[in-house]
Amino acid sequence: MRSGRPDVSTEPTRPEELLASVIADLIGDVRHVAVGNASPIPATAALLTRERNKLQGVPRPYVSLLQSRKHNFFTDGARELFDCAGQGRIDVFFLSGGEIDGQGNINLVSIGDYHHPTARFPGSFGSAYLYYVVPRVILFRTEHSRRTLVEKVSFVSAPGISEANVHRSGGPVALVTNRCLFGFDAARGRFRLQSVHPGHTVEEIVAETGFAFECPDEVPTTPAPSAETLRVMRELVAPELAEIYPQFTASVFGIGAQAPH
């Protein structure tokens, strides 16, 4: 129910909605998307992909939100996710990092000398495995700055690329930030600026990025989500998300955990 609100798809696009729309387009036509903890925008994107497909009569992807009881079918313990991934049964996953560098290396551990760090993050979680075996890993960082996007990470939780003989059925395909979308060229081990979000410029991206990247002469503006995409996000996805991200859905979509649907 929209409780008397006007057509929700005509309200202005929020930055979170733009990013979710960009990520949903990156997900593609796949069977299983998994989303880790504390990732409301990737979770929005995964559910958006599913709901848009459903409207087209396409019964995929499965979406596993690891933090959710409802959107999580695993029954064989916490290892089942990783066993699934090892077999290639997870097509898309999302990772971030305290630092991400120009070779796609991610750091979730610490800054400075590992044994005497100046800053410590929680830890690598499953990244040192999932980054290697999930075919489409989408990197995601809402703070695009020289502090987070660096030339070389202090600690490699997981490398962007591997030696030719190392089993590597997966890896990064893109990096989505609050300013732009980078594609990742695995053969060359570097990022390529793919589009700049509305309100941002290429000059700004260059100034705020600590690593060198490929920059075409013409860089398009990231397309805004369509009215239909906004409608699906606001009417179908937001109520599903309220279970695990009540604060996020309240601030972005204006609905709380108790919103009827």
Partner: peptide
């Protein structure tokens, strides 16, 4: 045995 890890500082 486990896949992944090779080339990481975790290892």
């Amino acid at each position: 045995p486990l896949r992944g890890l090779i080339g990481s500082d975790v290892l």
